[in-house]
């Protein structure tokens, strides 16, 4: 059974399926790091997405599995060099101040309550950061 995580963003819950087959090492490290509580903020360079930093997952030597540059809507991307987890609600790409385009791991895809969850992500741009909790979805 695929691994799944539960996301709770400012009171709105969603479930995402981890892409374990395509990104086994990344998923294993991410799974081991859960639960995570952070503040989700809007990205500044990458377009229509929110992000958190999981500092304990930052690893500049980790290969990027299941590579994407453009984030598909409802995707969760992971950039190991920063420990950055990005939640894309629209047109978005892995970018930063140096690189107009770079790579991320397509870590997971949100499967439930997509519209309500991403409405909250979108709102961070106008309303500021919001609390997010990521936990393992086990035994369901």
């Amino acid at each position: 059974m695929p691994k799944r995580i539960r996301l709770t963003l400012d009171g709105v819950e969603a479930v995402a399926r981890l892409n374990e087959d395509a990104a086994p090492e990344t998923v294993a490290k991410f799974w081991a790091a859960l639960p995570v509580e952070e503040t989700l903020r809007h990205v500044r360079w990458g377009g229509e997405a929110g992000y958190i930093l999981i500092r304990k997952l930052a690893d500049k030597t980790q290969p990027i599995e299941n590579r994407i540059s453009i984030y598909p809507p409802a995707s969760i991307g992971f950039r190991p060099e920063h420990g950055e987890v990005a939640f894309s609600y629209g047109q978005a790409q892995a970018r930063d101040h140096v690189r107009p385009a770079t790579w991320a791991c397509h870590l997971a895809t949100i499967e439930t309550n997509v519209d309500a969850f991403f409405a909250k992500v979108r709102a961070t741009r106008a309303e500021g950061g919001k609390p997010i909790r990521l936990t393992r979805e086990e035994g369901r």
Partner: peptide, 9 residues
């Protein structure tokens, strides 16, 4: 006034 989403700081 709000923060840019593509243009950085």
């Amino acid at each position: 006034l709000q923060h840019c989403k593509w243009s950085g700081s």
